[in-house]
């Protein structure tokens, strides 16, 4: 039985929850796995700390929360400060390298950075930063398939923004693949 626990952290308005939805959908609807998404956000609607917890497993997910993630994705310095200490030893950190500056890492943690904001700006919409991160996640981890992730993405974004989001996803994905040395 494999079970991967993921936490995605950032600020409200960055699309943290949507990132979780796309990964959860990809796993549970298109890849035939099980996924549970838990969202937590502060009382303010925007601008406060926001995080999504996604558990992806072969078997049905019992305990629903992510306490010590196998993979931590951070899009803001606060999320890094708050959640990095909870990473499992040997876990993985994926971070927005222009916003988050890595200091010490817990033992055995592998860290991969991406200039997701810059890529999003190059594509013309800073808002797709979260989609670049989702692509990056898929490229580095391979936990969900590219096909499933793209289907989940297309069924989750507003009509008319599909190609922009798909480009964002692919830019992130390719960068991720290049970092892990995949062919």
């Amino acid at each position: 039985m494999t079970r991967t626990e993921i936490r995605i952290g950032g600020l409200g308005g960055q699309g943290v929850i949507l990132s979780g939805i796309i990964l959860g959908k990809a796993a549970s609807i298109y890849d035939g796995l099980n996924a549970t998404l838990i969202q937590a956000f502060g009382p303010e609607a925007r601008g406060s700390a926001c995080s999504a917890q996604v558990t992806i497993a072969d078997d049905p997910v019992d305990y629903p929360y992510v306490l010590n993630p196998d993979i931590l994705v951070v899009m803001s310095p606060d999320a890094y400060t708050q959640f990095a200490p909870s990473l499992k030893p040997g876990g993985m950190l994926l971070y927005e390298e222009e916003l988050v500056h890595i200091k010490e890492l817990p033992e055995g943690v592998r860290a991969y950075g991406i200039g997701a904001t810059r890529i999003a700006e190059e594509l013309g919409r800073r808002l797709v930063l979260n989609i670049v991160m989702v692509g990056f996640f898929v490229g580095v981890t391979g936990i969900v398939s590219v096909g499933a992730a793209e289907k989940a993405l297309l069924s989750s974004v507003p009509k008319g923004t599909e190609s922009l989001n798909l480009n964002a996803f692919r830019r992130g994905f390719e960068h991720g693949r290049s970092l892990v040395g995949a062919a």
Binding site: G24, T36, I38, Q39
Partner: peptide
Amino acid sequence: EVVGHMTER
């Protein structure tokens, strides 16, 4: 609250 806000298939 957990079941209400938990997202699954």
